[in-house]
Structures are given as structure tokens and as C-alpha cells.
Design a protein around this nucleic acid. Structure first.
Lengths: 217, 217
DNA sequence: CGTCATCTTGATTACGCTCAAGCTCCGTGG
DNA sequence: CCACGGAGCTTGAGCGTAATCAAGATGACG
């Protein structure tokens, strides 16, 4: 990890935070290389983070190496919010990117910046909603529904003509509770059904969003 | 649902909340019958709840009837905490029981009751930790590991010589992302391996907690 | 004591996993 | 610019775990 940018009057600005995007003004920009760790499991949860560019995954490991991905985060998303004192998941960069980092104590010291507090509260809300939706997916959906749900969700979070996938098939598999082979098969099947069209394995166009949403249940 | 107990000077006491258990003094006791709904999916999340007796499950349904149970709550547990404006899951009584209910606005009006705030924060922390552990279970554990994890967890939350299960096999299955048949088979297997001993299908004794914990991974 | 929901057990099926080749694509260096 | 190499992806064959379908057994309650 390398410091990409530190505001020159970081400390003195803290108390001025009141309007607009406090994170932008108070935070420190840090660049992360692909697969670099932003924070580790059991680290103290002293900071909050926002993705500037690139993408982030949060993961938990079992002793035998089985892995579960908790969530993917894209530019604009806030992550690292945990009410407890330490992180239960680790966070890593999916690809090279930049993250804005803000110490929680600085946040408290700055007092009630209404906008920032609202943004954090909104992020916690989204976080919980997504986690609960993820539990339903893991517990009760079929492989096809899982993959369709994943793509539908991603397309809503990253609108655009073409969807590009910053994560590997292994990352998708560990997010969906599947194997890479099953993920690959489902994607191939969706392509042969004319729901998707791939232009290289990391670039998809959703040809039939309605059908995809239907398959996602 | 029936009102079981309303403090006679409910309103006047609110501003006195400062030490001890504010929930006890400010909350309203309500009795729920087995399978009765405490709150519904998409209800406004205006209240927080604490189990006094009995047990509660939170559930989410798919359109075709598939069900996922988010969590079980036992006496002393706080539930219904959601940062968003409405509930994503519904909550129902597993068996007849009593729940203490406190309106959030009353909570805010009462100001900073340090003990209560700390209890709520601790509950949110536990909630998130449990949810993340639950995701790992749903996504990456085998049927046997799921059942063993469930019993190990339950035994820690409800210590005692004998463990009694307030939920049906269907509830366990919907919590673990399995079918009732698989749950039943795993329990039978654990009994034949002398890890468990049943005295009726709702009462278990854990004969070998170490083995159970090992199977839970 | 009888009835019915709930739970257990058995037989069979199927979905997704494992193991095993190939293939693609991308970066690298000649 | 193209050949090479290798990680990551796809596809195939066979298997295994858990689901489904189908009887029975248990036990709670009137």
C-alpha cells in the first residue's frame, strides 16, 4: 500500500468539517495493488473506507482454506463499518485501485457532520440489507439463480452498456457458495440462452435483463 | 398478541431512565402465541424488542415459499435492530412467550441512558458477528458441519445440562439451508456416534461437546 | 385412547462437486 | 510483430452429497 495523497493541512481541517463531503476533505487517499490487504481479520476496526477507484472484497477463511466472500465494494461504496471493536472479515483489493481512509476518532472529534453521519448510516443500512439478501441467496437459491442474482445486482450497482467484472471466477464462486466450474457452466449456459454475451471472460453485455431478473427470482 | 403488563406510570418514568435496565422500566411487555408475528417484512422498524421468555425467529420468504431464517433469539436477546426504516425480515414467536417492546422515539426522548445505549450497541455488534458467521455456514459448510455448528452455538447461548430445542426441524432446516430430512439424518448420525443423546426430539444432551465442536469446524 | 402433526428412515434422483483435459487470453520477450 | 508461456477459464466425465419422494414411527393433545 502506498500513500497517494495526504491533505497538507489534514489535522487543522478536521474541525471545519460541516458541509459537503467530509470524507473527501478529511480522508487520506491510499493506493492498493491487486490482492493487497486493506485490513486483516481481527484488526481493530479504527477506520472507515470509501472506494475511489478499483474494487474491494471482504473475505473470511476456514482453517482448511475454504473461503467465503462477504461483499464486493465498488467506487463510491463505503466499507469497513463494523459496530464491534475488530474486523471479522479481511478486506483486499480485487484490482489496483485507490481507497479513501478516515480514522473513526477523527470522525468523532469532528463532531456532528450531518452529511457524513447520514452517509455512514445509509451505508450501514445498505450493508445489512445486502447481507440479509446474501443469506437468502446462499441458503436457498440454486446455482443458476445465484449467478443470475449476482449479475442482476452488479448491473444495478454499475450501470452501463457493458458490465465488466473486476473479480475472478474464484471470487464469484466464493461469494456465491459454488465452485469455479459451476459458475463457469452457468455463465456459459446463460450465454447460450442469449441472456448474456461475453467479450472476453471479464466483459459481459446483458442482452436480456428481464430474463436475467426472472432467473434471479 | 396480548398486552401482558404495562407499567402504571409509563410516561412519567421515561425521563428518569438513567441507571440499571431502562428497557425493563420503559418497555411494554407483550405476550405472543406460538407462530404469532411480532413484526412483518416491510413493517416500519419503530421498536426494539427483548425476549423475556420463549424464543423468536426472524424469517424471509421467496415468492415460491422457500424460506430462510436469519436468526433465533432467546431470553435476554435484543432483536428488531435495523438501521434502515423498515424490517427486511419478519419476526415470529417459536413458542408462546413474552417480549419487552420499546419505541425508538421513546428511546431518543429519554436521551442518553448510557447502559441502554451500550446494550443496544453490543446487540448490534453481536448481530453482525452472528450474521457473518451464518454466511460462512450457509456458503461453505457441509450438512454435518452445519448441524454441529448450530448445536454448539445453541449450547453456548443456553448453557445447561440438557438442551431443549424450541424450534421445529423445519425451522432448523430453514436456518441451515437444508431440508428437514437431512437435519433429521444428521441428528440421528450424531446420536449413533454417541455425540448426542435425545430424550424426545426436542430435548438433547450433548454427551461429547469436544467432538461436536470439532465437527462444527 | 385415538388422531394428527411432526419426526425418522429408506430408496432413488439430481444438482453441484471433483478430477482431468483443453482452450483463451494476456503479458512478456525475442 | 509475433511466438511463447502460463494463469485463468471452459468443458467433459463420473461421482457424491443432499434433495426428493414415500412410508412408517413417535409423541403431543384433545
Amino acid at each position: 500500500m502506498t500513500l497517494a495523497y495526504i491533505p497538507d493541512d489534514f489535522a487543522s481541517r478536521a474541525h471545519l468539517a460541516s458541509v459537503g463531503d467530509a470524507l473527501d476533505r478529511m480522508g487520506v487517499r491510499m493506493a492498493f495493488a491487486k490482492d493487497e490487504e486493506v485490513y486483516a481479520q481481527d484488526d481493530q476496526a479504527d477506520f472507515i473506507y470509501r472506494v475511489v477507484s478499483g474494487a474491494i472484497r471482504t473475505t473470511v477463511l476456514m482453517s482448511d482454506g475454504r473461503r467465503q466472500i462477504g461483499e464486493f465494494y465498488y467506487p463510491g461504496d463505503i466499507f469497513g463499518l463494523e459496530p464491534g471493536p475488530d474486523h471479522r472479515f479481511s478486506a483486499e483489493a480485487l484490482c489496483d485501485g485507490v481507497v479513501l481512509v478516515l480514522k473513526r476518532s477523527a470522525l468523532r472529534a469532528a463532531g456532528a457532520d450531518a452529511d457524513l453521519q447520514a452517509a455512514i448510516w445509509a451505508a450501514m443500512t445498505r450493508e445489512l440489507e445486502r447481507t440479509q439478501e446474501h443469506m437468502l441467496l446462499l441458503g436457498r437459491k440454486t446455482a443458476c439463480e445465484k449467478v443470475a442474482s449476482f449479475l442482476t445486482d452488479l448491473s444495478h450497482r454499475r450501470p452501463g452498456e457493458q458490465l465488466d467484472l473486476p473479480m475472478s471466477r474464484q471470487d464469484m464462486a466464493d461469494y456465491l457458495g459454488l465452485t469455479i466450474e459451476t459458475v463457469s457452466r452457468m455463465l456459459s449456459q446463460l450465454q447460450s440462452n442469449s441472456v448474456l454475451e461475453f467479450a472476453g471472460c471479464r466483459h459481459v453485455r446483458i442482452k436480456n435483463p428481464a430474463a436475467l431478473a426472472r432467473l434471479a427470482q
